[in-house]
Structure formats: C-alpha cells, structure tokens
C-alpha cells in the first residue's frame, strides 16, 4: 500500500503541493485530476523522489521511501516505474536498448555500460515489445517512432523493471485521441494482468471516468476530491477546474456524460 502523509513542496511562497495525505491500495488504478498547475506532476515526482518534498512522508508497505538514499533509492525507483508526458526515451538508441534501460536496476554497471545485456533480459524486453505490438520496431531508433509508439516503448521500459507501482505523469497529454486510447488501454491491461498499481495524472475527465476505479482531484496543491468517478458531479468538477471548467465540461460532461468515448475518439470507436 502506498501511503502519502502530509506531503508538501514549496517553491518560495508558492505551495505546489500543500499537505496532501492519501493512501492507495495495491492493484488499484487511480487517476489524479485537476487543472494544469494544480500540483499533480509535483505530487507524482515526489513519490519517486525526482522532486524532493519540503515536508511529509511517503511510505510503501511500511518502508519510508522519502528517507531512502543511495542504492536504497535506486531500488525504490526500480520498484516504482514512471511514465512521462514527453516519453523521456534516449532518441539515438534503438527501441530494444531503450526498453533494456528498465533492466538497469537488475544489472551490474560493468554489464550495463557496454550494453552487454543478458539473453534473458533481451528476451524479456522483446516480449514486452511484442505484448504492445512494437516487436517490428525493436531495431529502429527511438526517435524515428511516432509519439504513440514512443509512449508504448516507455511503457515496455517500465514493465521490464518488474515494478510494483507505475506512476504515469500526463502519459497521453502529447498524443492524439486515438493514440491516447491505445496507451491508456495498455496501462489498464498491465494493471489487470500483472496487478501492478497505477497512479496516473490526467487532464481529461473523460479518460479518468473511463479507466480509473478511483479519482483524486487536486486544486492549488491541495486534495479537494477523493472518490469513485461516478461521485464526481458537475459541481465538483466545476470546483476542481475553476476557470478552465467550461473547456473540460463542454467536452466531457455534455453529450458523453454516460462515459462513452465515442465523441472524443471517433477514430478509435
């Protein structure tokens, strides 16, 4: 279980994340929603310590990961994979090597640095690519792939870490609706198939409704909503998105209020 206890991050007078307390059960698929600048990214980045908290603690199965350092921190990041909005692949390396980066936590430096990955690791990486229909691109350079394909490579990289939890920071914000669906489906599949906990930042209410079993809403760094997606009424969404509400609500709460993705994703439907 992931426990976040009084977690804060201040930048000068700005409270990017302000005293957030939250616990997430294993195997859950939880969406974090809110307008841009609400602190969703900072919250996720504090969980794997790419950003250091100003105050508060993060625990995983009772271990205080916010106190880890050195190899303990590397091991935690190995168990807690991350998917980024901009994919964060190594453009000049091929797709298979990019997936194998996920094996760094399992590989000694003297084998990893000259890219002498074991056969078992390479088979594992290739199998992950096959699972997400990327096997034909294994030898392509990562930056030759489309955005949707690159994000699926990033998911493969996360998968071969053999993580217990995956943090996805706006994984579909740079993608068109069709690719967004493919990537979200992949995350949902991993969640169901391997029981990996998924915590995903989403801007779109519609996606949150379609995929998440539980939705957490943030505004101005604070937790303002926590519950089932059905409980997210128009009033609650309006409070969550403030000035941006009309953009989100017109598209999401209008004709598609029943949760259908048909109007948002004509190509996928």
């Amino acid at each position: 279980m992931l426990e976040i206890d009084g977690l804060s991050r201040h930048y000068g007078d700005v409270r990017a994340v302000d005293n957030v307390t939250l616990s997430i059960e294993k195997g859950a698929f939880v969406g974090v929603i809110g307008r841009s600048g609400a602190g969703k990214s900072t919250l996720l980045r504090m969980i794997n310590r790419l950003t250091e908290p100003t105050a508060g603690a993060v625990r995983w199965d009772g271990t205080a990961v916010s106190a880890l350092g050195g190899s303990g921190l590397h091991q935690w990041r190995r168990r807690c994979a991350m998917i980024f909005q901009q994919f964060n692949l190594i453009g000049r390396l091929d797709v298979l090597d990019n997936v194998l980066i996920g094996r760094l936590g399992h590989t000694s430096a003297w084998r990893a640095f000259p890219r002498l990955w074991s056969r078992a690791d390479r088979e594992m990486a290739f199998s992950a690519l096959e699972m997400l229909d990327l096997a034909p691109f294994a030898s392509n350079r990562a930056d030759d792939l489309s955005g949707g394909q690159q994000q699926r490579v990033a998911i493969c990289r996360a998968l071969v870490q053999e993580p217990e939890i995956i943090l996805a920071d706006e994984p579909v914000a740079s993608l068109d609706p069709r690719n967004a669906k493919v990537v979200m489906d992949a995350l949902a599949r991993i969640n169901r198939h391997f029981g990996i906990t998924v915590l995903v930042n989403l801007h779109s209410l519609d996606l949150a409704r379609a995929y998440c079993g539980r939705v957490v809403g943030m505004a101005q760094g604070r937790l303002v909503f926590d519950g089932a997606p059905d409980a997210l009424t128009e009033a609650a969404a309006r409070e969550l998105y403030g000035m941006e509400a009309h953009e989100v609500l017109d598209a999401d709460l209008g004709p598609t209020i029943g949760g259908s993705l048909a109007s948002a994703m004509p190509a996928a439907a």
Binding site: A81, Q86, I90, L104, G105
Partner: peptide, 15 residues
C-alpha cells in the same frame, strides 16, 4: 529528459 528517464528506471547517476 532522457537523464530523468534513466534515473526514474532505477539507474545510478553514472548510468
């Protein structure tokens, strides 16, 4: 961004 990608995968600073 690639640097963060490697760090977030459990890689060391050297990696």
């Amino acid at each position: 961004r690639p640097v963060e990608g490697v760090l977030a995968s459990g890689g060391s600073r050297a990696a």
